[in-house]
Design a protein around this nucleic acid. Sequence first.
DNA 1: GTTATTTGGTTATCATGATAACATAATTGG
DNA 2: CCAATTATGTTATCATGATAACCAAATAAC
Lengths: 144, 144
Amino acid sequence: MFFLKELPSRQMVETYAAPYGANPAHVIGALRMMRSASLLIRKIEAYFAAHGLSQLRFLVLIVIDREPERRSLTPNEIALRIDVSKPVMTRTLQSLQKDALITILASPSDKRSKEVSLTPQGLQRLQDTLPGYYKILSEEMENN
Amino acid sequence: MFFLKELPSRQMVETYAAPYGANPAHVIGALRMMRSASLLIRKIEAYFAAHGLSQLRFLVLIVIDREPERRSLTPNEIALRIDVSKPVMTRTLQSLQKDALITILASPSDKRSKEVSLTPQGLQRLQDTLPGYYKILSEEMENN
DNA sequence: GTTATTTGGTTATCATGATAACATAATTGG
DNA sequence: CCAATTATGTTATCATGATAACCAAATAAC
């Protein structure tokens, strides 16, 4: 995350960036993007927290739901669609299971693996939070 | 942070966004921005980690250094320039002091407060990492 | 000038990201 | 088919973000 309120001056960027072949306008553009995104992510996490979710917990529900031809995904498949580390995925799935938003069953075909499905409450939670999520994203882009 | 690899389809965004007055193009733009920024932030944290810093530790050094008329800043002043919570600032300053990149002295005028200054090593570390930092930012914007 | 409020900073605790090391199961190679 | 390798998940540990509750000092109110 990037929380510097006042970005470096053009002057300062030029002093340090130009001699090393960096483009000052690009540098400032990247800083602006990181700053905007950090503020937006913070806002979204607050929204999700108020709905008993987090960005990652929400994304897990989304990727399970948006595979219409599959009843369940394995933790590994979910991790392939969301690039967080394996331990983070393990922990997140356990927390979603604890909150009864997903079920985790043993896989009959591969004893190392699991089958993760949305519960009705998980689907409901997803549908309850999705519109507000999109609304925040949309408003953010309007005001910038 | 936002780590969904494949963004939702236009179709899906329209289904959920439009009925609630959200603009699908804006939603997708916001998702793209969050995704790009998350990847960039991850890359930058890796760069800083290899130099014994983190984004926040680096920003603290920067804001102290870029106040040419001041020899020191108080923790509160630093926190005003970087919007992280107070406990995070306390912990970060202590870690920088432990690594001898800053000094923290009691303030003579206000016994609640402190005076934070860069050490020569802190300034050196800053100057060593700044060009590479700008280079990463610049390259990121070129390739996108 | 004493009391109440505000300000500056810390501690305790939690959430969410990471890596390293591990156990167990599946697969591949000979 | 047995040994070696690869794949799937988990545990342990750490870093960096947050809030709540607190102490001590400064300031404001009366």
